[in-house]
Amino acid sequence: MSDASPYDALLLLSFGGPEGPDDVMPFLENVTRGRGIPRERLEAVAEHYLHFGGKSPINDQNKELLAALRRELDARGLGGLPLLWGNRNWEPYVTDVLREAHEGGARRVLTVFTSAYSSYSSCRQYREDLGRTLQTLAEEGRRLDVDKVRHYFNHPAFTDVNAAAVADALGQLPEQARAGARVVFVTHSVPDAMNDVSGPPAAGGGAYVRQHLDVAGEVARRASERAGRTLEWDLAYCSRSGPPTQQWLEPDVNDHLRALHADGVPGVVVAPIGFVSDHMEVKFDLDTEAAETAEEIGLPFARAATVGAHAEFVAGLVDLVEERAAQARGEAPARPATGALGPSHTVCPVDCCRNLRADLPAATGEDYRSPAVAGA
């Protein structure tokens, strides 16, 4: 029988996104506050959102994922577990959501991030926002404990759904382009320095790239079995936003498409394995810019789907919820993982994916101390 105890609520924690044109600049200012990003860069990124009417697709996608999670929880007899949704950078803000949850009786909450990998921007920054939230609530006299599920980049559900998506996209290419088509796995670029400190310090850093390479190899292997031939693949990056003087992970996906075409590759499948859903970096950077680059150079192009709210992926997330709950009860559940890296840590080690700009409390880590409750 399914059991989520000792947790009395489940939180889906995401990035957030604007709901209309008037929200775009305030949202981007929230995202970049304290980072010294020039106004011109914000205005350039704002155009990406305005290209789609000023509304990010991420909010509707999260609502779809929430509905799918609710169905899966109910099907497993967990209908009484409250399911919450909070964002880091836009409404519904996570502080407001957890305050309301506390008022409703929640005292221990389990969190699922809409980000599968290790790095400052894809994990620790979420943990820092949770740390600030818990401090704010403690100052109001509200005590909450928050845990999270482990990184799920190599959970079988994530890799299997991605592999099926790659195989399906391969079938969308013109027949003459399929035999020698290359798979280009894509994720969000980050500064080299951020990758260097990603993951536990004892592992030597570099976890962000290492995890993506491991997943790409596993997804390619599984997609090759479906396709009936060995698929060649590369890892490329999108959405660079730093100054030209700062080193970011490369190659850029557009540059890489041009290089593949110059080498005579007859077609490409672009697979956004770094993303859980079709949010702005997928819709603009891949479906718009990369697709335009491919059309410009005459390179047949198909984009694989993200895992989104696929039933197998959603079931995998609930498996992770049950796994973490069992650990919290002192049990030793099975922890399936694909590839060579094994299952990720449950509690983040000290200085994992550390912040290069400031030393901020980050919840759900070994070095985090719950803030004292006012008046306690």
Results as ranks from 00 to 15, higher is better:
M1P: 15
S2D: 02
S2P: 02
P6Y: 14
Y7S: 06
Y7F: 05
L10S: 02
L11H: 04
L12Y: 08
S14A: 10
S14C: 10
F15D: 05
G16R: 04
P26L: 07
E29V: 10
T32A: 05
G34D: 04
R39G: 12
E40V: 12
R41P: 00
R41G: 00
A44R: 06
H48M: 15
Y49T: 01
F52V: 10
K55A: 11
L65C: 07
L66F: 09
R71F: 14
L73E: 01
D74Q: 03
G80Q: 10
L81A: 10
P82A: 01
P92W: 06
P92S: 03
R99M: 08
R99P: 04
R99A: 13
E100D: 14
H102V: 11
R108V: 14
T111A: 09
A116W: 11
A116E: 08
Y117I: 13
S119I: 01
S121I: 08
Q125S: 15
Y126V: 00
G131R: 11
L137P: 14
A138H: 04
E139C: 05
E140C: 13
R142Q: 15
R143G: 15
D145F: 15
F153E: 03
V161C: 06
N162H: 15
D168P: 09
A169H: 08
L170I: 14
L170Q: 04
A177R: 09
A179I: 09
A179K: 11
A181G: 05
R182Q: 14
V184Y: 00
H188L: 05
S189R: 00
M194R: 03
N195M: 02
N195A: 00
D196T: 03
V197L: 04
S198C: 05
G199H: 06
Y208N: 00
V219F: 01
A220L: 07
R221K: 13
R221I: 09
A223G: 03
R226I: 10
R226Y: 07
R229M: 02
L231Y: 00
E232I: 13
D234A: 14
S239C: 07
P244F: 09
Q246D: 04
Q247G: 11
N254P: 07
D255A: 09
A259T: 13
L260Y: 09
D263I: 04
G264V: 06
P266Q: 06
G267T: 02
G267P: 02
G267Y: 01
P272S: 08
I273G: 01
F275R: 00
H279N: 00
H279Q: 03
E281V: 01
D285N: 06
D287M: 10
A290I: 03
A294C: 11
P300Y: 13
V307S: 06
G308M: 15
A309G: 07
A309C: 12
F313N: 00
V314Q: 00
A315L: 03
E322C: 09
A326E: 05
Q327F: 13
A332R: 14
P333D: 05
P333R: 07
A337Y: 10
G339H: 11
G342F: 09
S344M: 12
H345P: 15
T346G: 15
P349S: 04
C353P: 07
L356G: 02
R357L: 15
R357G: 12
A362L: 02
A362F: 05
A363M: 07
G365Q: 08
E366H: 10
E366D: 14
D367C: 11
Y368N: 07
A372D: 08
